[in-house]
Simulated scan of single mutants.
Amino acid sequence: MTQPSPIHAHACVDNPHFVLQIEIDVTPQQRPHIAAKLGDYLEHLQQLFYLRPGYLASELHAEGDPQRLVGRLHWRRKEDWEAAWDCRATYTELFAESLLKLGVRSIRFSSGETERAL
């Protein structure tokens, strides 16, 4: 199975920074289709946020566990994300409804500050 490439904005991700993470549990059979949809959603968000202050990058991780996909949005600070996030603009059928129709078992959102790498 071919893995999707990470999606990255043209910005350096520095430490520490704020990360919004989307974890999706999938069946191995549905993984390629769901990974493509999550990748589309992250690209959509990247286009919305690319020029916003504090936005660093978006990425999709589909390696490892065949039942888990992880999307991440990297921001310089939590306040930058809060200022940019607008549910009306960021909600899209591409994400919620399409992923559920494809057979996603669960979707979890989490966020937090990364630690400084030593």
Rank of each mutant, 00 (worst) to 15 (best):
M1P: 07
P6V: 00
H10N: 13
C12I: 13
D14K: 08
D14Q: 10
P16G: 02
I22W: 04
I22C: 03
D25P: 02
T27R: 15
R31M: 05
H33R: 14
I34M: 10
A36Q: 14
K37E: 10
L38Y: 08
L38E: 04
L38W: 06
G39A: 12
D40K: 07
E43R: 15
L45I: 05
F49L: 04
F49E: 01
F49M: 06
L51Q: 12
P53C: 00
L56I: 03
L56M: 13
S58D: 04
S58C: 09
E59P: 01
E59M: 04
L60A: 04
H61L: 06
A62P: 03
E63W: 04
G64E: 03
Q67M: 06
R68C: 04
V70D: 01
V70E: 04
V70N: 02
G71I: 02
R72T: 02
R76K: 07
W81K: 04
A83E: 11
A84R: 06
D86Y: 13
C87D: 13
C87P: 10
R88V: 14
A89C: 12
A89S: 12
T90Y: 12
T90K: 08
T92R: 15
T92H: 15
E93Y: 15
L94K: 12
F95K: 12
E97F: 12
S98P: 01
L99M: 15
L99V: 11
L100T: 14
K101L: 11
G103T: 10
V104I: 11
R105L: 06
I107Y: 08
I107T: 10
R108S: 10
E113K: 13
T114A: 05
R116A: 06
A117G: 03
A117L: 14
A117I: 13
